[in-house]
Nucleic acid binder design. Structure first.
Length: 520
RNA sequence: GGCCCCGUCGUCUAGCGGUCUAGGACUCCGCCCUUUCACGGCGGCAACACGGGUUCGAGUCCCGUCGGGGUCACCA
């Protein structure tokens, strides 16, 4: 039997980082086994705006390069792939369960159920519905209906015996049937509940392996019950440890953003991203733009390979030392056997380390091309760029080197893209390196004259030139180079001094130094 | 609270009874490189939750305790 896995997101408007990890494992497993990976949209409870809420999810997967063989936009033999369009299937399944007595119509109100639950809790007993408003016959149903009651369909769970789940990551897990609730599978409005829809679809779509997060483990008995009653062959189950919050073992969720922002590392990559987003003119509402959401990484200019590589190692490892995987290697090496059992917390710093490594391996041409995209988006270069811009940006990117962690970082090197008279000077740096040192202005003036007449303007020559300058005056390099850097770039830190001067070229350097001399 | 899952450095993990004075990675801390920043190089700090068994021998198997988490919806 061929391997078929699926990821079934609800259209929530964003792709959660934990969801991606689950999807990744499903995808990797399917690809590695020569099987199929499908995307199904669990919108049984969704409002009308499904399209808008789905798009970011699809976009996220596309960006990551996680492709699906069947699902939205690509179709497939088992469609439709939206649960909202599969109503008849669920109705038929519900009817079948009703017919064989595995489910019943129930007319209890939510208040009545709540009251029973409360009473049970008070008595210290575990709650199980009394089935008091269960319709045993059509006459019962008519009578309840006459009282103005509405009905749902509930599962008639067995009250004895146990169910053993053979989980691919957790081994055998046992549950007592008697503790399972008579779960609702169809709402009063006739719409199906997730568990029912999920089981029906997994069967109809020939899913061989249900790989999902651990929080579904305790849902599994009821789903198995449904499947068994419907006569379905059971898929294999694999319950992955969930992705936990930074610095804790709690499940990572989008709701607790405020808490995560108090985590230093999380706050750091968030702030870094926010700054880039601002320069790009993006909406930076924390609700829709933060490191829990995949879109954040795309917008800021992370590489999907680095993110995937990091996520791969969140709950899986190959051996005692291998950390870097290409896409092909991930597919080749991934196995469910080596999935970990304990939850893994999301570590922003380590993610950045993977991003960094991935970025440094990227060929310069690609780096430049993506950087140009970001520069255009920020409005710093024309769209489309004149061909010499590509050459110019190549020089800049080479000079920046490892300092470029994500593509958006190119926007931190404003000095290369701003007009001379618009260069902003960092106040502290200006004070410390130009205003305060006694001879800074004097030296800068002298150096300016010297620079105006130096023959060659490449980095190596400029290097020698400055060294000669320093030597002649019997001063230290530190007496001039810092002031020079601030004068020319506006900041105290940046690329190599001589590369910077060379890229800027003589005219711009002179104009910027003049500006400082006039200011002082 | 019931049920279920989990428990090796701060974090991600290796470890499937002896080769573990517990290995790798990220972080952190030194030193080197560099008169910026970043990278890089070298070195260092740092863990088997606890208690009982089983065994010649336990991080590895069993039991218990403790701790953490998940789940108990007409959400998915």
């Amino acid at each position: 039997m061929s391997v078929r896995t699926r990821f079934a997101p609800s259209p929530t408007g964003y792709l959660h980082i934990g969801g991606v990890r689950t999807a990744l494992f499903n995808w990797l497993f399917a690809r590695g086994q020569g099987g199929q990976f499908l995307l199904r949209i669990d919108d049984t409870d969704a409002g009308r705006n499904v399209d808008a809420a789905l798009q970011p999810i699809l976009d996220g997967f596309r960006w990551l390069g996680i492709d699906w063989d069947e699902g939205p936009d690509v179709g497939g033999d088992c469609g439709p792939y939206f649960q909202s369009q599969r109503g008849e299937l669920y109705n038929a399944a519900v009817q079948q369960l009703l017919d064989i007595g595995a489910a019943y119509r129930d007319f209890a109100t939510t208040e009545e159920i709540a009251a029973e639950r409360e009473a049970a809790e008070k008595a210290g007993a575990s709650f199980r519905y009394s089935r008091r408003w269960r319709a045993e016959s059509d006459a019962d149903a008519a009578r309840f209906a006459a009282e103005g009651r509405q009905s749902v369909v509930r599962l008639a769970m067995p009250d004895e015996g146990e169910i053993v789940i053979d989980d691919l990551v957790r081994g055998q897990v046992k549950f007592d049937w008697s503790r399972e609730q008579d779960l609702v599978i169809q709402r009063a409005d006739g719409s199906p509940i997730y568990h029912l829809a999920s089981v029906v679809d997994d069967h109809a779509m020939h899913i061989s392996h249900v790989i999902r997060a651990e929080e579904h483990l305790s849902n599994t008995p009821r789903q198995i019950f449904i499947a068994q009653q419907l006569g379905y062959e059971l898929p294999k189950f694999a319950h992955l440890p969930f992705v936990a919050e930074p610095g804790s073992k709690n499940k990572l969720s989008k709701r607790k953003l405020d808490k995560y922002l108090k985590n230093r590392d999380f706050a750091a990559i968030n702030d870094h991203g926010q700054q880039i987003a601002q320069k790009l003119g993006l909406s930076t509402s924390a609700e829709t733009f933060n490191p829990v959401i995949v879109d954040f990484y795309e917008q800021v200019g992370y590489l999907p390979e680095g993110l995937l590589n990091y996520l791969l190692l969140l709950g899986w490892s190959l051996d005692d030392s291998t950390e870097d995987f290409t896409r092909a290697e991930m597919i080749e090496k991934f196995t469910i056997e080596r999935v970990t059992k304990a939850p893994a917390s999301f570590d922003p710093k380590k993610l950045m380390a993977f991003q960094d490594r991935t970025m440094q391996q990227l060929p310069i041409k690609q780096k430049v091309s993506r950087c140009v995209d970001f520069l255009q988006q920020a409005g710093w270069v024309a769209t489309p760029p004149p061909c010499d811009i590509a050459r110019y940006v190549t020089q800049v990117v080479e000079a920046i080197g490892d300092r470029l962690k994500v593509f958006g970082d190119i926007l931190e090197f404003e000095e290369f893209f701003v007009a001379d008279d618009e260069l902003v000077y960092d106040e502290k740096a200006f004070e410390k390196r130009i205003a305060k040192p006694e001879r800074a202005i004097e030296l800068l003036r002298e150096y300016r004259e010297s620079l105006a007449t130096c023959d060659e303007f490449d980095a190596a020559s400029l290097d020698k030139h400055l060294h000669d300058f320093v030597e002649q005056r019997r001063i230290g390099m530190g007496d001039i180079i810092h002031a020079l850097r601030v004068a020319v770039t506006g900041t105290a830190q940046g690329c190599g001094m001589f590369e910077t001067l060379a890229i800027l070229g003589r005219d711009r350097c002179l104009r910027r130094i003049d500006r400082v001399l006039n200011l002082a």
